[in-house]
């Protein structure tokens, strides 16, 4: 469990490097990746969790990135993009692909649709975190002094 969370952090750092991020930003991305995966992993163990883990993970990534962006005066995008990669449902897409190739149409459809819904859960989680946190943070620190 802890090892997997740390692996998630390593993934976030590696993809951060791939997207040309550097310095302390990279370390923060790694921490966000680790914490979000650990909490999402806990939720996955609930009975009938379904895609709840992805959803909560995305909320945590979005929320922490928004706070980090405020504190570091950097675009939130820099923190979100590397950390969200581990939640992308690559495994489901792969299962769907193999099922279609083996003529198992129904299970291919099932995995494919689940992957699409997982992507939807991630999007809604990110959107929710950003939409709620951004106005709150803007109000607290320096009341939009950077606005035109």
């Amino acid at each position: 469990m802890i090892v997997r969370a740390l692996l998630s952090g390593v993934t976030a750092v590696a993809f951060g490097l791939l997207y040309q991020v550097s310095g302390s930003t990279l370390i923060i991305s790694g921490v966000i990746g680790t914490i979000s995966w650990a909490l999402a992993g806990l939720i996955m163990h609930f009975p009938n969790a379904g895609l709840l883990g992805d959803f909560v993970g995305a909320i945590i990534v979005g929320g922490m990135a928004e706070v980090a962006a405020r504190l570091k005066h950097e675009p939130a995008l820099v923190f979100v993009v590397p950390s969200i990669i581990v939640f992308v449902p690559g495994d489901l897409v792969y299962q769907s692909m193999v099922a279609f190739l083996k003529d198992h149409f129904l299970s291919g459809m099932q995995s494919g649709l689940t992957a699409l819904m997982a992507a939807g859960a991630l999007s809604i989680g990110l959107a929710l975190a950003t939409a709620v946190l951004r106005p709150m943070l803007r109000g607290r620190w320096g009341a939009g002094k950077h606005r035109v």
Binding site: L77, I84, G90, Y94, V98, S123, A131
Partner: peptide
């Protein structure tokens, strides 16, 4: 060999597009 396959194609994931799409939408 599924995990090897997934690892390879995840490098190509359009993660940035998804994130910016959401942020533009809000």
């Amino acid at each position: 060999p599924g995990s090897i396959l997934v690892a390879g194609i995840m490098v190509l994931t359009p993660g940035l597009l998804m994130t910016t799409a959401v942020r533009d939408g809000i």
